[in-house]
């Protein structure tokens, strides 16, 4: 028998190291914290599953989860249709294309903490343009004190920041549709709505799947915006799971925090998997795809 050369293992070593440092070691550290109790001084006591039980029995966890789900649902309901509408309105030819693409990409290029600061200042009623203008018009607006205002502000921020992503993805799907489809639709006498419903939408399905997935994951993990603008308040009406985690960390509840972040992680993983499985089921190639010949020569 030919001796097996084991040297190839060295070639995967860099990747193993990278994955270990970036994912496995941090994750295992969190797991480590979530099953132990510590009072500092590197003293650890076995805690078993008690942290998990505490998290799952706490009302504050379920409330935060509910807020996350509600926020993601609202974000998806606004950003996906809005992104598609903007993409449909964008020009397909000429100098307008470049202008629109750059304009659309701008919000995406701004770092998250800057977005938070911009909106925090923007919405202040003493020095902010939006807050000041609303106050001037007699609208009683205060993102820090009114729960509805706080939510509206966070949603508007996210829509402003991320609708472009949906638009760009939808636009990429639209421009990939050959001109012949539109011609064929004209020959059939199809209306504008029919063209959208039966040609553009099905042709965009794949990129919209990606858009939904990306927007869901991102909005479910929302942190920077409430952290900077509302700080989780007023009360804890904008205390999303990530904010709650930060609160736990700040109050040195490391065990409970670790348990919660693992549960959080598993929820995101589960949702993403469900989304992906459901949305890709439609266009998966059938195993019984018919061969090219449909029964030989006539």
């Amino acid at each position: 028998m030919k001796p097996v050369n084991q040297k190839a293992w060295f070639l995967v070593l860099p990747v193993l190291l990278l994955v270990a440092i970036s994912a496995v070691i941090p994750l295992m550290t969190v797991v480590n914290y979530s099953v132990q109790d510590t009072f500092g001084n590197n003293q650890f006591f076995w805690a078993g599953t008690s942290w998990y039980e505490k998290v799952l029995h706490s009302e504050r966890f379920w409330n935060a989860l509910l807020r996350d789900l509600m926020f993601s649902a609202i974000i998806l309901a606004i950003e996906i249709p809005l992104g598609v509408i903007v993409a449909l309105a964008m020009p397909r030819k000429g100098w307008g294309v470049a202008v629109c693409l750059v304009l659309m990409a701008l919000p995406l290029l701004i770092p998250w903490n800057v977005v938070g600061t911009i909106w925090q200042v923007f919405s202040r009623e003493d020095i902010g343009l939006l807050g000041g203008a609303l106050k001037g018009m007699g609208v009683d607006y205060n993102a820090v004190q009114d729960p509805v205002d706080a939510w509206v502000t966070l949603i508007v921020m996210d829509v402003w920041h991320w609708t472009s992503l949906v638009t760009l993805l939808a636009y990429a799907g639209l421009v990939s549709i050959p001109d012949a489809y539109y011609q064929a639709a004209r020959i059939d006498g199809a209306s504008g709505w029919s063209v959208f419903r039966f040609i553009q939408l099905p042709k965009m399905a794949r990129v919209l799947t990606i858009a939904v997935l990306l927007r869901f994951m991102d909005s479910f993990m929302i942190f920077a915006e409430p952290f900077v603008v509302t700080g989780g308040g007023p009360g804890n009406t904008t205390t999303f799971m990530s904010i709650d985690l930060e609160n736990l960390r700040a109050s040195n509840e490391l065990g409970q925090g670790a348990a919660m972040s693992l549960i959080y992680f598993l929820i995101i993983l589960l949702f993403s998997w469900i989304f992906y499985a459901v949305m890709t089921r439609e266009d998966a190639p059938r195993p019984d795809k018919a061969p090219d010949k449909t029964g030989g020569a006539p």
């Binding site: 012949a180 489809y181 064929a184 004209r186 020959i187 059939d188 040609i199 099905p202 042709k203």
Partner: peptide, 16 residues
């Protein structure tokens, strides 16, 4: 759409 015309293209054009 008011003429009785049908067209088939190089790309395979059907309602997806």
């Amino acid at each position: 759409q008011q003429r009785r015309v049908a067209m088939v293209y190089q790309q395979f054009i059907n309602y997806p």
